[in-house]
Computed example of a mutant assay.
Amino acid sequence: MSINKAQGQSVKFVGLDLRIPVFTHGQLYVALSRATSPDNIHILLPANTLDYTTRNVVYPEVLLD
Rank of each mutant, 00 (worst) to 15 (best):
E61G: 13
D39E: 08
V30L: 03
L64Q: 14
L28Y: 07
L50H: 09
L28P: 00
Q27R: 07
L16N: 05
R34I: 03
S2M: 13
T54R: 06
E61Q: 13
E61Y: 15
P38K: 01
Q9D: 14
N56Y: 01
L32N: 01
Q9M: 11
G15C: 14
P38G: 01
Y29P: 14
T53I: 05
R19S: 11
V11N: 05
D17Y: 10
V14C: 09
D51Y: 05
S10V: 03
N4Q: 15
F13Q: 01
T53C: 12
V62C: 05
D17H: 13
D39N: 09
L50R: 14
F13R: 02
A47C: 06
V62H: 07
S10C: 06
E61K: 15
A6S: 15
Y59V: 03
Y59H: 08
G26N: 05
P60G: 12
L63R: 07
A47Y: 15
M1C: 14
E61R: 15
Y59K: 00
M1K: 14
T36K: 00
L16M: 11
L45A: 08
P21S: 00
Y59R: 07
L63V: 06
I41H: 03
T36I: 01
I43V: 08
N4R: 08
R19I: 03
V62E: 02
S37K: 09
L44I: 14
T36W: 05
G15K: 12
F13T: 00
D39S: 05
A35K: 04
S10F: 14
N56R: 01
L32V: 06
Y59D: 09
R34Y: 00
Y29A: 13
M1S: 10
G15N: 08
N4I: 14
V58T: 07
L63C: 13
D65Y: 15
E61N: 15
F13M: 05
V22D: 02
T53A: 10
A47I: 05
Q9E: 11
K12E: 09
T36R: 00
V57P: 06
A31I: 01
G15E: 12
L18R: 00
T49K: 03
V58I: 15
N56G: 11
L44T: 07
V14W: 03
V58F: 11
Q27Y: 06
V30A: 00
T53Q: 11
V30E: 00
P21Y: 10
Q27C: 00
G8L: 10
L64D: 12
A6W: 07
P21N: 06
P46T: 04
L16A: 10
L44W: 03
R34K: 05
